[in-house]
Write a protein that binds this DNA or RNA. Structure first.
Lengths: 212, 212
DNA sequence: GATAACTTGTGAAGAAATTCACAATCTTCC
DNA sequence: GGAAGATTGTGAATTTCTTCACAAGTTATC
């Protein structure tokens, strides 16, 4: 199977959103053209993205909304629930713990960790904050899939190492730092300051950029 | 002047972070190789990225940390402060309003807006929540540069339209929806659910993806 | 001051992603 | 059931992005 570009995966995720929207409105079929218009891309791009995984449409007719949505869910691995822990119970960590959107999309927060002794045991949205030292042990019981890192920049690498050592294979990193990880661990970075700097660049240089 | 790729701008932003780190540690010069190692890229990529804007290094020696940092700040438009409003005073909006990281990097939050009458006047981290209806009027006084959208998906487009109508030229969108904007308005999307789905894909398909 | 050791800046080559363009196929209508 | 109209799936062409490779310039050493 061919290597799939990250940009393709992002778009698949986006298409799925639109399909769910169409589904909710009771539409049965949709063409690559309509999907492209929504996603700000071209119909050829939509068809190419899908073609990496099979052929899901009917020539002359388009795609079945329900079927394509279901296929995309399978491709993206969204047919199962994912178990997520939040590491770092500061402002961002607490906000993420409270955010309902993850749950809705099948990412279930199962615990919140911190390494500040003063915070351990305190409650954040129904979760008693646990000590990071217990992560590996807890993970043996709780089979965590993804760790969300919401720690200061300097702590990012050591905490990421603990996460990996405890057997978790995917990290969503909110810390403004680059993390080095073993090959087999999946990593995504979210960096709001960097996004703002992209806007600063666009405003300063009169160029429009867009992404994600 | 050539069109600059978004990926280039992202990397410049990243290089600047590393340079500030080096600066804090008192280092004077740095090579493209060292910068590349930090950023997970190649030295040729670093030099090419910089070459779009001029030549800042000394052959045989590398780059002056202080000078390159200063040049990058100018390129990214970070020599001035930017005035930011947060639109949407829900969980995410409130967390963003409280987050100190923006302020530190020159993005000053000047107000928080919502269109829920029950919330207007309430305080969020020192900001009295204002009615969205006043955005255009307020902006005439307050010269806002960037609006951060933290509203539900369905509200994203109409609220974005209000933001644009009030004369703001840049939007950082946290809503899980695609927004259509006039050419001259800069847009960046941040979508945490989409990032998680990227990890879900990687975990399901055994592929590692990374970004941003 | 000549030689060795580095490191930049950049055109050219290579790789990757996007778009084009059209044959293949399906539906509808008369 | 044949013709018209629509839309997919996909190689080929194009565009964009990354990497290569090396001349040019700088410093250090003897």
């Amino acid at each position: 199977m061919k290597r799939i570009a990250e940009s393709t995966v992002r778009r698949l995720s986006l298409y799925l959103r639109f399909l769910e929207d169409f589904e909710a409105r009771g539409l049965d079929t949709i063409s690559s053209d309509e999907l492209a218009a929504r996603g700000g891309t071209t119909s050829a791009q939509v068809r190419k993205d899908l073609s990496f995984f099979g052929s899901f449409g009917k020539r002359g007719l388009g795609y079945s909304v329900a079927e394509l949505a279901s296929r995309l869910r399978r491709i993206l691995g969204l047919e199962r629930a994912w178990r997520v822990v939040i590491v770092g119970a500061g402002k961002i960590g607490a906000a993420l713990a409270q955010y309902r959107g993850f749950q809705e999309r099948g990412f279930h927060i199962v615990a919140v960790y911190d390494n500040d002794a003063a915070k351990i045991g305190k409650m954040v949205d129904g979760f008693a904050i646990r000590s990071l030292d217990h992560l590996a042990e807890d993970n043996r019981r709780e089979a965590v899939d993804i760790a969300v890192l919401a720690v200061p920049a300097q702590a990012a690498q050591p905490v990421a190492d603990m996460v990996v050592a405890s057997g978790i294979h995917a990290i969503l990193n909110f810390a403004p730092a680059r993390i080095q990880l073993p090959e087999h661990v999946a990593l995504k970075n979210v960096n709001m300051a960097m996004e703002l700097e992209g806007l600063s660049f666009a405003l300063t240089n009169g160029r429009i950029v867009d992404h994600g």
